[in-house]
Amino acid sequence: MKKIIVPVDFSDHSNFALETAAILAKKYNAEILALHMLEISETILTQGESEIESETLFLLKLAEKRFNEFLEQDFLKDVTVVPIVKHFKVFSEVNEVAKEHSADLIVMGSHGSSGLKEIFVGSNTEKVVRNAEVPVLVIKNKPTALSFDNVVFASDFTESSINPYLKASQLFDTLGSNMHLVYINTPGENFNSTSEMEQIVVNFLQKADGNLDKLSEVDFISDYSVEKGVLSYANVTGADAIAIATHGRTGFSHFLSGSISEDIANHAALPVITFRID
C-alpha cells in the first residue's frame, strides 16, 4: 500500500478519516493524498468569463489556506501529505483522481449511524463507493486502536462477487489480515439447505481460486436478515472490520439490500471496506 486518498470537507468525520489514513500511512510507509473539492456555485458560473476567473481564483486561494491549516495536525507528523484542491464537487471524480495517482485505497468518513446500508444511502460516501474502482474504507468514529487483524468478508458467493473477493484477498494479504468468509442464510425465497449452500461456495471457490483450499474457512450462519447475521458474526469473531461487495449502479448489491432493523443497525460501529462489483 503506497497511496491513500482522503476526501476532506473539514468536518469531524473527514478528520476521523484523515487520522485513520495517517495510522495506515505510518504503518505501511504510504503517502496521503488529501483531496478537497471546491464547490463552484451556479451564480458564479453564470457570470462573465473574467468575473468567473477572478471569483474562482479567490475561492481556490481561500480553500488552500483553510486546507493547509486543516492539515497542520499532530497525527500527520512524519507522514507525507499531498494536498489536492479541485474546483468541482462531483464525488464520482474521486475515482478519476484515484486512477490518475494509482491510489490503493480511499478512506472516507461517514456520519451514518443507522446501519450498513444507511452508511451510504443519500450521502457523498455512497457516490464515491458506487464509482470507485479501488477499495473504499468507511470510518464512522474517531480511530482509537485501528487494526485489521481479523476481517469479515460477507458474500452471497455468486459469480458477480468473484472480483470483489479477489481484490479483498489481495488487500488483506498485504495488510496481514485474517479474512473470515461468511455466508448468511436467511428465511424466505433466498433460503438454501446445507448442501445447497456448500455447493454454491464450492462452485465459487473453484472459479475464484481454482481450488478448495479455503472451503474449511467458510462459516455458514443462519439469521433473520443478512445485515443482522453479518453484524452478529463480526461480533462473535471479534472482527476489526467488515468487508462487502457493492454494486456500481445501485450502491449495494442485492446481497445487502432490504430493510435493516434499528436495534442492530445502531451498533454497526466497525469500519466497513467496500469492493465494487464490476
Rank of each mutant, 00 (worst) to 15 (best):
T20F: 02
N192E: 02
Q170S: 03
S155F: 09
A22Q: 10
I32Y: 03
T125E: 12
V94L: 09
V230W: 06
G109H: 08
I119W: 12
K86S: 01
N15V: 12
K214M: 12
D219E: 15
F70A: 11
M197E: 12
Y165N: 00
N190Y: 12
L181T: 02
A239R: 02
D74R: 15
A34H: 00
F58C: 07
I162E: 07
T56V: 09
S110K: 11
H247F: 08
A234R: 08
F255D: 09
G188K: 12
K142W: 02
N68K: 12
E96K: 13
L137Y: 13
G229R: 05
I277K: 01
S50Y: 14
E198S: 00
N141M: 08
T43P: 01
L270G: 06
E19Q: 14
A154G: 11
F70P: 02
V90G: 08
K61C: 04
I44P: 02
F120S: 09
F157N: 11
M108D: 04
V182A: 00
V218K: 04
F148G: 15
S50D: 11
T20G: 05
I277A: 01
T274M: 07
K140G: 09
T194H: 04
K142H: 05
E69Y: 13
G115S: 07
L33M: 10
K140D: 06
L18E: 03
K142R: 03
I5D: 05
F191N: 08
E49I: 11
S225R: 07
S114D: 14
M37I: 14
A98E: 10
Q199T: 06
A243V: 13
R66E: 12
L116K: 06
I84Y: 05
N15I: 14
H111G: 08
Y224H: 04
N15E: 08
F16L: 08
T125L: 09
T274P: 09
N185D: 01
V218F: 08
V182E: 07
G176T: 13
N124I: 06
F75H: 10
V134A: 13
V151S: 03
P143L: 04
V151R: 07
